[in-house]
Design a protein around this nucleic acid. Structure first.
Lengths: 208, 208
DNA sequence: GTCTATAAATCGATAGAC
DNA sequence: GTCTATCGATTTATAGAC
């Protein structure tokens, strides 16, 4: 697969590449890496196929760059969980932030999910590297809070997995979620989801 | 897309088609519909490409049949939640069953996830049909249990979504889960996950 | 930098021998 | 029923005019 190298760019070049990235994110998230074609990406951004390949050397390189810029954004909110705040409040803030991302960054969520689902061929290093570092760091913090009896005892790794899965579900499986709710509930999915999740995690983590 | 029609088959034909289905499930779940090729499926079951196309008229037909037989199996456990059992016990039994499926039916889970993620082109009808029927039925039951104060009040739709997302996460995102755990914790993922989930749902649903 | 035209590769599907 | 050979369509990527 393609390696990402940093190259000096003019302003115009940066803008065109961003235009292509935006279209590519949309197409890749809907069809996956192999279902996406340069024709679809070209149509989505109003350029021609050879013109896209003037800015990127291959389809794989576009995919790699889209994925790369997404991953950094994806890991960031976890880092914001602060040692200084109130434990339960910090965790609930993270849940809210992740749920908001499912609403506003649906394409990113789906692309990330597809990549992991298919074995994370381009992402393995990051998962085992910087993401693992951040997770291990927050696991330590959660364990500290548990030993101080500030939150109820629980496996911190699986707590993090549960936050990820429950919040991302509303982006990744949106078609299913919408199919199962009636019109009325459909219009307030994210309010209902937030109420549910905050209640759920509060009941599970609150110390008596 | 291809429509499924029931055709009379000899025993040999049934066996060959099952052989192909099994290989196809493996390949489709790893690469998706478009990433999968007949060559890969052929290699996986030890047949040649034209031989596969002797038993199936197209790649799409194989995909449709694999997905079809998976969907019935996928919906079934939800139906087993019984009105007659103890409410919390019934829900926890369902959680356990779904988690077990994530362990033993990983390929099926990934294929289903990929299908929904990409807009459920072949599955929409079933989602809005028989799955919605079953879900609505169980939502009524959960609401009944809530009004009888047998479980704590909670949005029943989102409760079901939370069970699905948290359990399926261990199949669909296995690469990520494994990357983040050390060897020791990796060997007991499913025990830890079960402990976590049962504790969590008990704390969330138990009436004081 | 952007285009049309086309080369090159991949892949689904078929023809036809056995 | 199964195979080899190949067609035809799609799609990535390049050549070369402007």
């Amino acid at each position: 697969m393609t390696k990402i190298v940093q190259i000096k760019q003019t302003r115009i070049q940066r803008e065109k590449r961003l235009l292509i990235q935006k279209a590519a994110l949309q197409v890749f998230s809907e069809f996956g890496l192999r279902g996406a074609t340069l024709d679809k990406i070209a149509k989505a951004c109003g350029l021609t196929k050879p013109n896209i390949l003037y800015y990127y050397s291959s389809k794989d390189e576009i995919y790699a760059e889209v994925l790369q810029s997404l991953l950094e954004e994806w890991i960031r909110p976890l880092k914001d969980i602060s040692e200084n705040g109130d434990p339960l409040t910090e965790i609930l803030k993270y849940v809210k932030k992740k749920l908001t991302m499912s609403k506003t960054k649906k394409q990113e969520s789906k692309l990330f999910a597809t990549e992991i689902l298919h074995g994370a061929p381009l992402t393995q290093n990051i998962l085992a590297g910087s993401l693992k570092e951040t997770v291990d760091d927050k696991v330590k913090l959660l364990n500290k809070w548990i030993s101080e009896e500030k939150i109820a005892p629980v496996d911190p790794y699986h707590l993090i997995f549960s936050i990820w899965s429950m919040t991302q579900h509303y982006a990744d499986f949106d078609v299913q979620v919408y199919s199962l709710l009636n019109t009325k509930k459909r219009s307030r999915i994210f309010q209902d989801a937030e109420d549910f999740l905050l209640t759920f995690f509060t009941r599970c983590l609150k110390q008596d």
